[in-house]
């Protein structure tokens, strides 16, 4: 189990992380979401020992990560970094050796990953001669080459074309299948929703939501009702007591109902306008969950204050 526990960090008066904690099970993928500057990169850097937290720790298998155990973690920094003039194969071998593989094993693993990521032909080229997409693959190879027990990836999907996204997703899923816990941050919430077993949403240095996508949905469920009434006059739902119209377009209406509100009253009102072609509770997308979580009124007040 990979545990982030009670992380706090501030730069001067700026509290970057405030009691950030979450848990990632082995063989599961954790999506780490948050707006820009929410503190995702700082959290990951703390895990890699690049930033020293004021409080809290990151544990793997019950023990705090230290320099020795961090060698078993594959890491991809947000700001990609490779030696520009070093050859692809040698570079990956070098990182394998830094992670503790001996010379022969490192060379073998490097050759294997170069092939697997489709870089075979570019093996002898300097990294700076590669396209950005291919550089990204080298970066991934550097993170995976040492057969890490844990993967921590900061924005691994940014800058990839759809094909690249798919092949990276496939690579990560195959790691998960071997029992590796994977943490990655991303702005692409559809990807997170598709790939991740659980999700954490970070806003202004605080975890505002964690859990599986299902759990988050359930927490928010029973609030959005979609009703399609093609024959209704515009504004048909405005007068319904206790409900708020989120959107309305040619009869396709999204309503927000508070807890305990009577959905049958809404249906009755809809039927009065004519035909009802659709009437269902709508599952919120992760984007909506994210917006809801990030726009937490409590933190809004703090920002305003």
């Amino acid at each position: 189990m990979l545990e982030f526990d009670g992380l706090r960090k501030s730069y001067g008066a700026n509290q970057v992380l405030d009691d950030v904690g979450f848990t990632v099970q082995p063989g599961s993928m954790f999506g780490f979401c948050g707006s820009n500057g929410a503190g995702k990169t700082t959290t990951m850097r703390i895990a890699m020992g690049l930033v020293v937290p004021e409080a809290g720790e990151v544990r793997w298998q019950g023990r705090p990560l230290d320099q020795r155990t961090r060698r078993r973690v594959g890491y991809m920094p947000e700001e990609r970094g490779l030696y520009p003039k070093m050859k692809v194969g040698e570079q990956i071998t070098y990182f394998a050796r830094l992670h503790g593989l001996d010379a022969a094993a490192a060379a073998r693993a490097s050759a294997e990953w170069v092939e697997r990521l489709g870089l075979g032909a570019r093996r002898g080229d300097a990294v700076e001669k590669l396209s950005l997409g291919n550089q990204q693959r080298v970066q991934l190879a550097a993170a995976l080459v040492s057969r890490p027990e844990v993967l921590i990836l900061d924005e691994p999907f940014s800058g990839l074309d759809p094909v690249g996204v798919d092949s990276l997703a496939e690579a990560l899923l195959s790691q998960v299948r071997t029992g590796v816990p994977v943490v990655f941050s991303s702005h692409q919430l559809d990807l997170v929703e598709r790939l991740c077993d659980s999700v954490g949403i970070l806003a202004r240095g605080r975890m505002v939501a964690t859990g599986t996508v299902e759990e988050l949905r359930r927490r928010e469920a029973g609030r959005l009702l979609r009703v399609v009434v093609p024959d209704a006059a515009p504004g048909w739902a405005a007068a319904l007591p206790g409900t708020r119209v989120v959107s309305e377009q040619a009869g396709d209406t999204l309503l927000e109902l508070p807890d305990g509100a009577d959905d049958q009253a809404v249906l009755a009102a809809a039927l009065r306008t004519g035909r009802v072609t659709h009437f269902a509770w709508r599952e919120p997308t992760l984007v909506e969950l994210f917006r809801g979580a990030v726009a937490d009124p409590r933190t809004d007040e703090e920002v305003a204050a």
Binding site: L50, R70, P77, E79, G81, L82, Y83, P84, A142
Partner: peptide, 17 residues
């Protein structure tokens, strides 16, 4: 400076002091 400007230093410091 090469290690800093290419940002590879972050990857290096994840494995060593």
């Amino acid at each position: 400076v090469e290690e800093k400007s290419s940002r590879v230093v972050e990857l290096l410091l994840a494995t060593m002091r």
